[in-house]
Structures are given as structure tokens and as C-alpha cells.
Nucleic acid binder design. Sequence first.
DNA 1: AACGATACGGAACGATGTTCCGTTTATCAA
DNA 2: TTGATAAACGGAACATCGTTCCGTATCGTT
Lengths: 196, 196
Amino acid sequence: MGDNEAEAGGAVPSKRADARRNKETLLDAAAKVFVASGVDAPVRDIAREAGVGLGTIYRHFPTRADLVIAVYRHQVEACAEAGPALLASGATPYAALREWINLFVDFLVTKHGLAAVLRSDTAGFEALHGYFLDRLLPVCAELFDAAVAAGEVRSDLTSYEIMRGVGNLCVGAEGDERYDALRLVDVFVAGMRLSR
Amino acid sequence: MGDNEAEAGGAVPSKRADARRNKETLLDAAAKVFVASGVDAPVRDIAREAGVGLGTIYRHFPTRADLVIAVYRHQVEACAEAGPALLASGATPYAALREWINLFVDFLVTKHGLAAVLRSDTAGFEALHGYFLDRLLPVCAELFDAAVAAGEVRSDLTSYEIMRGVGNLCVGAEGDERYDALRLVDVFVAGMRLSR
DNA sequence: AACGATACGGAACGATGTTCCGTTTATCAA
DNA sequence: TTGATAAACGGAACATCGTTCCGTATCGTT
């Protein structure tokens, strides 16, 4: 699924060497700036950090959101792949769901400002929103459905709501020591549990 | 607590009549624009709607946040005052807390984009954030503490976290029919409940 | 070495919140 | 009624964003 590696010798003209190099430089610079200033950092800061012009950024990543996606793609992928594994190894589907959600929360909270992007209304971030949902929603759904089938959680929820709700609970967590997102999510997940 | 009415004949020089009139006009226009385009509506839209210049807005409300505060002050006040009443009339402190939170959620969800402002990181909205917290946090705390004292809810939370958590759950609720903030908050509130 | 396609840099655009200042107007004393 | 003066006004101008555009530089190939 990689963009275009050295192999895959199709008819598609391989990108120029400097272009490929700049894309890497850009990803590194963006990752660095994101941890320093959050995902809301100005595009210009990233360009300066990478020692590259604005045009170069926008040729490689049509929109800021695409850059954010590219930077975190690996981690999103890892989170997605952890889902089935947890379901297989967990004591119960509910336990697996809880663990997976903790993984998700860890990911969001450690990326300054990333959680805010799960909101749909954030202008220009539809792409990012869409990517996260496309990739992670099915995983969440699998875990949730299993928990519902096992009769462990209330069924009047959707996995979409769970994703968005958990994401929202993580918004603004970093940099506010009075706000412990992990604990709040824990309360939420406890609330899903069916009393028996 | 009103700014300066006709009475209260102190030594403070009363504002000019046109200024007072414009302030009212501005509040009406802002309220109108907020329901039409959300609290994120451009300042220029409000100025146009009110038929005044930009300078006039900024003289009356030093920052966009101050304008938002002024527009919703009455409803925040009402929400704050409902707290003690609910505690007195509710079956149990937990029931009162639950009802009050529902009131809070209704308020947030019906104001397009207001919830997003509860986040502290939103640049320039510290004033709004502060006002909401100053006014509503003590109310929430009273209800929550009572519920804790009654042994109805888990005590490893702070009222600050509850306010922020509930507020966050409301972010982006309007305009997304797949996302039911009231139900998610209900799950959260259920999660606070102590099993017995 | 020369040439064409590709990629680059950064000026320029449109939107936004906010500031500034020359102009207008309300108020009040004479 | 009429000036004088402080208050308030309007909107141009500024800074900061994301994004677009195009003349120029560079790469890869012949």
C-alpha cells in the first residue's frame, strides 16, 4: 500500500529522487514540529523546519490534513491491527474492547491536539476525520459487536458514537493536569457495561 | 449585576445613549448570527447584521469571546441557579446531578459550536472558558459532592473533570444525526454510579 | 551537452481576529 | 440656540492563517 517504492516496476514514471527525499524530510520535520507545537502548528513552521518552500509541502500533501494523516498513518495502522489481536487474547470481548480503547486513548492523548481533529466540524479536516473513521471504525465495531453479542454491554449505542465519544473525551487532555482523559474514558466504558 | 442601568446614580459617568443602544443592537445581532452560523461566525458578519462598524464591536466587547459570554450570560445564569433547586427537589443527590447535567447538555447542544469552546486550548477563548467554569463549576461541585457524600457515585473524579468531560461529549453534536450527545452523556453518568 | 519534464520557492490571495485613528455625534454649559 | 469637548463610530490597515500560482531551477535522459 506504500505510495511508490523502488520496486513495483510498472509503467508509472517513478518520482524524481529529490521529490522522494523532500517527502521524507517533510514527514520528519512535521513529526518534530507536531510534538513541539501540536498538530495545529502553522504550515510555514513545518516548511521552515524542513528547509523547504510552501509549494513543496502542498505538492506532496494537498492539504494540511493529508500531512497529518501521513505522519500518523503508521500508528493508526498499528492501533487498527491491535483490535483483532486483543479480541483473540482477551478474557472477554468487553475486556478486549476496554483494552483497545485504552490503546486508542493513549495514541490520541500523546499527540498534542490530535483528538480535536476527530470532530467533524473542524473545517478542512474532513479528510483526516474520514481516514480515522474508515480505518478504526470497523475495528471498534468488531470489538463492540462481540461485546454486545456476549451480553456484556448495552446495545443502544453505535460504534461510531463510541469512537467519537472517546475521541471527544480526549480533547484538550494534554497540558491540563486537572483533566485525566484516561480516567474519564474509564468512567464512560464502565457506563457501557450492562448491569447484571 | 447589570452593566449600568438608568438608576444607580453613582458618580460614574453614564454611557452615551447611542452607545447603550448599539450594545443592545449588537447583542441581538450576535444572537441571531450565532443561531444561523454558529458561535464561530466571523465578527464581520455580526457587524454587518447589526449595521455597525468593526470598531464598535471591539469597543463594547474587547474580544469575540466577551461577545459570546454576553450573549449567553442569561442562560448560563439560569443553568447555575437550577442546581440548588434540583438538589432540593430531587429524589437523591445523584438524580439531581443527572438532571442538572441534562440541563447543561441541552444548553450546549442547542448552541451550535458552543461546546467546543469549553476546551481550554482554543486560542483566544480563555475568557469564555473561565467564565463558564467560574459560574458553573461550583454548582456542579455542590451536586457532585452531595452525591459522593450519599455514597451514590465513585469519588475518584473531580467536578472539573465532570464539567469538561460532559462538555467535550457535546462537541460537534449538532449537525451529526449519527451522534447523540445526550445518550453518550447518559452512558458517562451511568459510569459514575457506584455499584452496590 | 542539451533538452524536456518535473519539482521547487515564495510571492500573492482570501479569510479571519484585532488595532488604530481620522471623523462624526451626543451631551451640556453658556 | 450654539459651541466646545469628550465619547463613540466606521472601516482601512495589520498580522496570521491555509492555499494557489507561476516563473525558475533541477533532475534524468538522449
